[in-house]
Computed example of a mutant assay.
Amino acid sequence: MARLIRPTAQQQAIVDAVSTGGNIKIKAYAGAGKTSTLLLVADRLSHRRGTYLAFNREIAEHARRGFPPNVASGTVHSRAYRSVSSALSARVNLPAEPPQELAARYGLDPVEVPLVTGKIVEITPFEIGRMIVDGLGRFCRSADDTPNALHVPADEKIDAKAADWLQDGLRPYVGRLWSESIDPRGRSAIIPDVYLRLTRFDG
């Protein structure tokens, strides 16, 4: 397929650079010809194996049909899923713990906080549990070594000082959920971001 593509000068430069070995990074906008360039690269390196990682299953499936046999196509999450232990990957399919039950397990009660308007509102156990889970997801998608207060989402309508207090207070629980998620003896469900982060840091 790639042999039918007549490369532009930029594409040819990329193919030549890849052929010399080493790592290269290419930045291109939508419609710039990224896929056709990769097809050219796959054709040039037909004697070597390659991997095409996509953001969703539909793109990965399309790539699987278009690339030559020496290129394996899949999503980032599917590769990460296959890279972690079976004990961990099996937990992805377990029923998720409802947010209010997570809050109850951690001994967290409803709290009242002021809004920027001065009105006092109640943050329910469901909302607290959701903030912890979302905080874990944000941590997993970050480059930070440990969960911090900024990973905990806070509604912009909450007074700034109250939001800081709430985020600081929930940060340890995000860390606790992270520890539970990566514990090989764990029996609870985990979010996909957990194994994606583990794969990223394990290589």
Results as ranks from 00 to 15, higher is better:
V15H: 09
I132K: 08
E97G: 08
K119A: 14
E112C: 08
P114W: 05
S85Y: 15
N93W: 13
R64F: 03
K25M: 15
P7C: 09
P68I: 00
F55L: 08
I120H: 10
S36L: 04
I14H: 13
R49P: 00
S78E: 10
I26A: 06
F55V: 03
R65K: 12
Y29L: 06
L39W: 01
V133H: 04
I120P: 08
G74K: 09
R105P: 03
E61N: 10
P99Q: 12
R64V: 01
G107V: 01
L4K: 03
E61Y: 02
T124I: 06
Y52V: 10
R6S: 12
A96E: 15
S36H: 12
L94W: 04
R49Y: 09
P125Q: 03
M131F: 02
L115R: 14
G21C: 09
R49F: 06
A54I: 07
G66I: 08
I24L: 15
E127H: 02
K34C: 11
R48Q: 14
L88H: 02
H77D: 14
L102H: 02
S86I: 04
S46R: 07
T37Y: 04
L4F: 03
L108S: 05
Q100E: 15
G33Y: 03
S86A: 12
A17W: 05
S46Q: 01
L53Q: 03
D16M: 02
A17Q: 13
P99W: 12
